[in-house]
Design a protein around this nucleic acid. Structure first.
Length: 521
RNA sequence: GCGGCCGUAGUCUAGUCUGGUAGGAUGGCGGCCUGCCACGCCGCAGAUCCCGGGUUCAAAUCCCGGCGGCCGCACCA
């Protein structure tokens, strides 16, 4: 596979963002006051899409398994959590600015660029290093300001205390709440290794420069799993068979360090055998994550698995693979990160809290190792919308999987008279008890179809003159505009089957979604 | 955060250079028409001209500062 996959999608970020705002998916937050960078509000359609994707994720990773528990931790979090996790220390950048031209630099990056080794990341030592080496602004030679710390975590104060306020952090990742609840879950649920904990919710990072519509936000939604494994059993994954033959587009750290940007098509089994992925559990979760993304309709050719090079690795990570999606307007971008966090987090929390965070497995006390698949919901949504965005002549529509489409069905009277509208409202009332549905009798039938297509409604039910005679309606398919006639008495069952099987055309050879059968794990 | 470009109804945009009544399209609402793919007609509503300050008799327009957006750089646990 080449570095840039061929794609017939010419959609630009502006077109996509325009549709999203115009049709009520997303709005920039605080727009009436001039806008606030890095924050978006979910509109009426966005909130449906979001719920559908969250539900799909929860079903796939929690409900269809027996080894993953759910959790919903607090957003404002005990400050010691982040001292233990390393975020208070590692999540800081020291910035210096030029007093003459105003250019801003990351102090440690500037020093390292000049070949000066940075021994400790404190304001004092950075200041001394700048003074000792007489470092000046590389742009204009001007004098540099003192380094000032910038932590990417948002803070808030808890309670009414004004003197020495209790400063707490808005979580920069949901993961830590799983680690700090590890013992609670083990005790309450009687969990035994291996097992995982899944959580989704808001996370907050005070990004220096939010960009790219939903791509880099200051407030966003993570869907994370921390999967705990006995460190001596990292290569014994009973589910590995399920993913070993999956083909992935892999770009290893070694390839990148040697300047290669082309992925290799390889099965996960082979990637593990050849040591590209170091543990079977890690490879398994890469496969499982990919399978879920495929189930949302993302084209496997637009996804690749890229290993982090050493310099990219987070302070807690031993090995990380990003699943990247090819956005025609931005190139390859991370939508999922799957890290091997080893026992870093649990050990740190043991150290800082004094609580023992072990579990007994096969009669021995172990602090488990962790594989973490971490999904960025807004990034997944952006990828899904990009993939779905389709233009045919002047027609624009979203080819969303019926399972995740905000509305499953729209109900139209062919015309608004002769009692067709009354009958259509009756049909609508029946359908809305079963599916997310809406009724529209405004303007021409063609316009109503087009507007439904634009927001990805997979099925339009139309009530016409024949309906009054024989109680049948037409069901129109979004992708092909074909219509079939269905008796009103079986409409609900027919639509339910269509949605479950992901039918998007009238052919009998139904397009079956990449679904997953319950496997009794 | 830096540099470049930009900011006018929900959306797209004319007007900005050369200061003097904010105009169009689309979308929205009401009505008529309409028997299958963004039909047509009539009417109505909709603009803090991004915000603040300055210059001026007069500012969407010129100047300064801020906010927001796009692109590039940097950043991205």
């Amino acid at each position: 596979m080449t570095a840039q996959p061929s794609t017939n999608k010419k959609v630009t970020l502006e077109e996509l963002a325009d549709l999203c705002v115009r049709r009520g998916f997303f709005f920039q937050s605080g727009r009436i006051y001039g806008g606030l960078s890095g924050f978006y509000d979910y509109g009426p359609l966005g909130v449906e899409l979001q719920r559908n994707i969250l539900n799909s994720w929860w079903r796939w990773f929690v409900e269809l398994r027996s080894d993953v528990y759910g959790l919903d931790g607090s957003i404002i979090t005990h400050p010691r959590t982040w001292e233990a996790s390393g975020h208070v220390e590692s999540f800081i950048d020291f910035l210096v600015s030029c007093k003459k031209c105003g250019s801003e630099y990351r102090a440690d990056a500037l020093l390292e660029e000049l070949g000066i080794r940075v021994t400790s990341l404190t304001a004092e030592s950075l200041k001394r290093a700048i003074e000792d080496h007489g470092v000046r602004c590389p742009v204009c030679g001007g004098e540099l300001s003192d380094p000032r710390p910038f932590n990417l975590m948002f803070t808030t104060t808890v309670g009414p205390r004004r003197e020495q306020p209790l400063v707490a952090y808005l979580r920069p990742e949901t993961a830590q709440l799983i680690f700090t609840n590890f013992k609670n879950i083990v005790f309450a649920m009687g969990a035994t290794l291996p097992f995982g904990v899944a959580q989704y919710g808001k996370a907050f990072r005070n990004e220096i420069s939010p960009r790219g519509f939903l791509f880099r936000l200051r407030e966003f939604t993570q869907m994370e799993i921390e999967y705990f494994v006995n460190p001596r059993k990292l290569n014994s994954c009973p589910y590995f068979e399920e993913v070993k033959d999956l083909k992935v587009n892999l770009l290893t750290a070694e390839d990148q360090e040697e300047g290669r940007q082309e992925t290799r098509e390889i099965t996960l089994g082979e990637a593990l055998e050849r040591g590209f992925i170091t543990t079977a559990w890690h490879a398994y979760w890469i496969g499982e994550s990919l399978r879920w993304l495929w189930s949302l309709g993302l084209d496997p050719r637009h996804l690749r698995v890229r290993e982090h090079v050493k310099s990219e690795l987070a302070h807690y990570a031993v090995q990380t693979f990003d699943i990247e999606y090819y956005f025609p307007f931005m190139g390859w971008k991370e939508i999922v990160g799957i890290s091997n966090r080893s026992d870093y987090d649990l050990r740190r929390h043991q150290e800082y809290s004094g609580e023992s965070l072990h579990i007994v497995d096969d009669g021995e006390k172990v602090v488990p190792h962790v594989i973490e698949p971490s999904f960025g919901l807004e990034r997944v949504i952006l990828a899904v919308l990009t993939e779905a965005y389709t233009t045919e002549g002047s027609r624009t529509y979203l080819r969303l999987k019926p399972e995740i489409a905000p509305f499953k069905v729209a109900v139209f009277p062919l015309v608004k008279r002769d009692g067709l509208d009354t009958k259509a409202l009756e049909v609508y009332r029946i359908l809305r008890a079963h599916f997310r549905a809406y009724y529209d009798d405004d303007g021409s039938i063609g316009r109503r179809y087009a507007k439904a297509d634009e927001i990805g409604v997979p099925y339009c039910v139309t009530i016409d003159g024949q309906t009054l005679a024989d109680n049948t309606v037409t069901v129109r398919f979004r992708d092909t505009r074909e219509q079939v006639r269905v008796p009103l008495s079986s409409l609900v069952d027919t639509l339910r089957t269509f949605i479950e099987k992901g039918v998007t055309r009238a052919e009998t050879s139904y397009t079956v979604s990449a679904g997953k059968e319950p496997e009794g794990r």
